[in-house]
Design a protein around this nucleic acid. Structure first.
Length: 598
RNA sequence: GCCGGGGUAGCUCAACGGUAGAGCAAUCGCUUCGUAAGCGAUAGGUUGUGGGUUCGAAUCCCAUCCCCGGCUCCA
């Protein structure tokens, strides 16, 4: 055993140490599963973010009811403090070992490692074929929890056998495990699929079909604010708003190439007067048609066409997920047509816009990735070497100049161009893929796009595709979870709820409502004959930011008693002061009320 | 699409071969009340859908639709 095989990291929270811990835990889980369910064959068990999994092939159908027993036995082994011992083996030795155990999957893995150094790692009674990176002993892996069981294809290929995957989480300390489990619980509470219907924001209707979203009045109000803000911001930044049809003749999709490279995601043809039409899965070709409608000069460029374009994509039934993965959605899509010397400033403009989106919606953290091509496989890509180099250079240069850290994702680019993907990190630390800025070298060529240059000759413009929300549906879903349903004032579907104590306050309530309505605020008035506590409870559960409790004393004093949804209160506020505060808070778009309360 | 789990009142759940039930919500009445649930009554269901087994099915079987956890894919 060499010193590097075992991770004795000084920092137990280093990624290396965490992975080692989790991977070691996977070994122990595999040991226990084989012990408790004889005949189970093992495959692989890597560390993943926050934990690990192990894939098994077993006659037994694992359920969460098995977890308790597996965990109990795992703990016993952990307490046994068995060391993880690595041993170099030859291909033949390894093959003989796994053959004797009937571990067919291990034998298959072995085939891929014929000419490499192989190691077996053993702890307690269990040995696994493994390249190493382990905790020193089983004692350090006590803080874990099995989470779920799911199907997974052997080697991720749907043509292969379906295995059973057990997911688990593991941490260096009890505190970290507890806090992670708390986060999972919190995530469950914030789930937009629960909150959405509970707050009456949206629904999905069986009769209409899966993956199709119905925006209810309250969700619709939030969406309207989101869209209005985005449109206003786009216009400020020199975009033009365009509108394009939802269906188009298949010839368009043949020209763009979508019917070949995107076919599996498109809904079928619609026959109309002997011509075939298809629902649009993307807006790009339609924006291109607008570009092509006139002869463009270099003086016209850059042209920035933006649209809240609703697209339809066929997604396999098993992948649909609330608002996050649907079959019909609206992209805040834009296509920028520009000259080569404009690309850096255009990319910069997109990144700037994206950062403004993050800031506006209260996301403080984000992660960026630049996806480049794999130069080894040039033939798979559209576009010339110089184009790729220049565009990739521009993407990186923009981020570098702004001092934004990014990960380089080699070979992750689409065939048509490199891109920046921006993930934002929500209130409980989860990353979400959101904004994207990508070059497209394919479509300008397919459509033979041109502009007349200063030299009087025809040149091909560059095309940048950019989405900031990504999809309005998904972004809205992320917001619901980010805010846990408690939208900041500027987004809240109902901003103020007036709660009257008795009918004697009806006149005053009506006047107040009128005043706030006229200021453009979204106000409701609960005039029911319910106790004030009941009304407060309901308004609080609806997550209305401001409640005005209106009783005889307030009417007499001519002031308002304001209550915030978090329970804070501010009494004896004048209507004018309240209105001023609301107006200012809407304008500042702050996630939480900044009001000083008593 | 695939593997596994699951669909009972608007919502959360109970009944698990023998007359479908509770809480909340809804409706109607009473109550006019000071900061997170006032009281009472009423109504609400071909148990996702279709077929089968059975004297009898929410319960067992088959098919189908949808949802959930994942796989593959992705805005």
């Amino acid at each position: 055993m060499s010193a590097t095989d075992i991770v004795h990291a000084a920092d137990p929270d280093s990624q290396e140490a965490l992975d080692a811990l989790r991977h070691s835990c996977a070994h122990v889980m595999a040991q226990v599963v084989q012990e408790l369910f004889p005949g189970t064959r093992i495959t692989i068990g890597p560390a993943i973010e926050n934990g690990f999994y192990y894939d098994f092939d077993s006659e037994h159908r694992f359920t969460e009811d098995d977890f308790k027993e597996i965990e109990k036995r795992m703990l016993q082994i952990a307490e046994g403090n068995h060391p993880f011992v690595g041993k170099e083996v030859t291909y033949e030795e390894s093959k003989a070992y796994w053959a004797s155990k009937g571990e067919t999957y291990k034998l298959e893995i072995l085939e891929g490692f014929k000419d490499q150094k192989l190691t077996h790692y053993t702890h307690s009674t269990f040995t696994d074929l493994c390249r190493g990176g382990h905790a020193p002993n089983t004692r350090s892996i006590r803080h874990f929890k099995l989470l779920s069981v799911a199907g997974a294809y052997w080697r991720g290929d749907e043509k292969n056998a379906m295995l059973q995957r057990i997911y688990a989480t593991a941490w260096p300390s009890r505190e970290q495990l507890t806090s992670h489990l708390k986060m999972l619980e919190e995530a469950k509470k914030r789930d937009h699929r629960k909150l959405g219907p509970a707050l009456d924001l949206f629904s999905i209707q069986d009769l209409a079909g899966p993956g199709l979203i119905f925006w209810h009045p309250k969700g619709g109000r939030v969406r309207l604010v989101m869209e209005d803000w985005l449109r206003a911001e786009a216009l400020k930044r020199g975009y033009d708003m365009v509108y394009t049809p939802h269906i188009a003749n298949v010839d368009l999709w043949h020209t763009s190439g979508h019917t070949s490279f995107y076919r599996q995601n498109m809904f079928g043809e619609i026959e109309v007067e002997k011509a075939e039409y298809q629902l649009k899965p993307m807006n790009c070709p339609l924006h291109i048609l607008i570009y092509q409608n006139s002869l463009r000069s270099y003086k016209d460029l850059p042209l920035r066409y933006a649209e809240l374009g609703t697209v339809y994509r066929y997604e396999r039934s098993g992948v649909l997920h609330g608002l996050m993965r649907v079959r019909g959605f609206t992209q805040d899509d834009a296509h920028i047509f520009c000259t080569p010397d404009q690309i850096e400033s255009e990319v910069s403009g997109c990144v700037d816009f994206a950062l403004e989106v993050f800031k506006t919606y209260g996301f403080e953290k984000y992660a960026m990735e630049v996806s480049t091509w794999d130069p080894e496989k040039k033939a798979d890509y559209s576009g010339e070497v110089e184009e790729w180099d220049r565009a990739t250079g521009a993407l990186e240069a923009v981020l570098k100049r702004r001092g934004i850290a990014y990960r380089l994702m080699k070979g992750e680019a689409a065939f048509y161009g490199p891109k920046i993907d921006m993930k934002l990190i929500d209130a409980i630390g989860r990353p979400w893929q959101l904004s994207t800025v990508q070059f497209d070298f394919n479509l300008p060529k397919k459509f033979n796009l041109e502009f007349v240059g200063r030299d009087g000759a025809r040149h091909r413009p560059l095309m940048v595709h950019r989405a900031l929300y990504g999809s309005v549906e998904r972004f809205f879903g992320i917001l619901v979870e980010h805010y846990a349903g408690a939208f900041p004032l500027w987004l809240a579907p109902v901003q103020v709820k007036i709660l009257t104590l008795t009918d004697a306050q009806n006149t005053a309530a009506g006047e107040l409502k009128k005043k706030l309505d006229e200021a453009g605020l979204r106000v409701e008035w609960d005039a029911r004959s319910e106790k004030i506590g009941h009304k407060i409870r309901e308004a609080t559960m609806e997550k209305v930011p401001y409640m005005v409790v209106l009783g005889p004393k307030d009417v007499e004093a001519g002031t308002l008693a304001v209550r915030l949804r978090d329970g804070r209160r501010k009494n004896a506020v004048s209507a004018d002061e309240f209105l001023r505060h609301l107006t200012e808070e809407v304008a500042r778009k702050k996630p939480a009320s900044s009001w000083e309360t008593e």
